[in-house]
Write a protein that binds this DNA or RNA. Structure first.
Lengths: 219, 219
DNA sequence: GTAGTTTTTTACCATTTGGTATAAAAATTA
DNA sequence: TAATTTTTATACCAAATGGTAAAAAACTAC
């Protein structure tokens, strides 16, 4: 029997809230234990609901895992396109891009870690998605960078490796945070650490590109 | 009863061979499934021995995991010191360092992945080791880079982030190889891909440092 | 060859865990 | 108040899996 329902009942709102609470909990557990090491029991515990109730919302673990991955990927796909980082000069685009990427590492460290586990494991779940969604965007962005080179706006760098390096350098602040914390002697990375990293990396990249600067170098 | 034995009997040789075969198999499984997802059964299968025989050599999974991590770390610690990359100029040191690091990614991709899983998971096993071994070396290397800056050999870059970026960019070729393969449209990364990456990254870093070059820029 | 040691195989077990089934509160909506 | 949805509790189960115990087989040394 199909019923007509108001869109925002108390129940449906609570449901959304609880679902996202579960997803955040799942993120934490998947990030720190990997897919196999994460137990539904533990995720339920962190979500402060019973295991049975968790299963009521997410009938199985695979689905929950997929949802966590989808969530972080949607964020990336949305913010990660070079083309959409409006800016007139290559330098502006790069600065904006590195900032966006670094913000994702700061704001969604657990999602990033789950993604990292997945890719390192050979992307058993995400491979198709990478091919269908990430690759086309990557190729568009590569073209853009090549056009910059052709126009003489930047030096003749290797476009593919430019992206791999930026991604790696920004993600390392989420994925390898434990190592960085140890080496910097900090219990946890603070906003200032991310800011410093953003500045350093941006400077690296801009220098490497030999981008024609608007503002004079700061040192 | 303690017996004197010849050092290289048929048995002891076979044992060493089998042990390293097991370690390589374990590396593969830990890399693709993480610690929890890796089963002793599967590791035995790849090693072409029975599960019970595997347990004979490595009485439990934790120990096997530790051994795999130790193996890759020994390689790193050995090759990763900035100071030991002899070279007169900063540029030479950097080039040598990036090359070494990239070679590790090429030669030990699975070890690198196991390490990555471990760090992303919060380094439950390796944390102490990082503090006691990696941190002191890191601090020495930071000092060296700072001395370069003081002497005006390189520009005033952020030393810590220099290392984080180099590590991330080189390791991504091992850890995120699946993603890179997808984006480059290749089934597997070849030696030429690593070489290209090495050149690109080296150039990238050298430019970022503003190191005084010996050879004129190639473009 | 034989005793002693090392390696391999066979049989088995206890725990974990993802998930089912069911009933019944509790809360929400109509 | 009746119907629906959400939550918890109880009991349970099959498969996977890390690990034990012990006997058989292979090898080494004398």
């Amino acid at each position: 029997m199909i019923e007509k329902k108001p869109k925002y009942t108390k129940q449906s709102v609570n449901r959304k809230i609880l679902e996202s609470r579960i997803l955040r909990s799942a993120e934490i557990v998947f990030a720190s234990k990997g897919f196999s090491g994460a137990s539904m029991e533990r995720i339920a515990e962190i979500s402060k609901i019973s295991k049975q109730n968790l299963i009521y919302y997410f009938p199985n673990k695979d689905l929950l895992y997929r949802r966590v991955l989808e969530e972080i990927l949607d964020i990336w796909i949305e913010k990660l396109s070079f083309l959409e980082n409006h800016g007139d000069t290559p330098e502006q685009v790069i600065r904006s891009y590195v900032r966006e990427k670094m913000q994702i590492s700061r704001l969604y460290p657990n999602g990033s870690k789950v993604f990292a586990h997945e890719i390192i494991s050979g992307a058993p779940v995400l491979k198709d998605y990478l091919i269908s969604h990430l690759k086309p965007q990557f190729e568009r962005d590569i073209k853009l960078v090549k056009s910059w080179i052709d126009k003489g706006l930047i030096d003749e760098i290797d476009p593919e490796n430019l992206f791999f390096t930026i991604w790696a350098a920004t993600q390392t602040y989420a994925d390898f945070s434990t190592q960085i914390e140890v080496l910097l002697g900090k219990k946890q990375l603070q906003e200032e650490d991310f800011e410093r990293a953003e500045i350093a990396l941006t400077e690296f990249v801009v220098r490497a590109l030999g981008a024609k600067k608007n503002n004079s170098p700061s040192f």
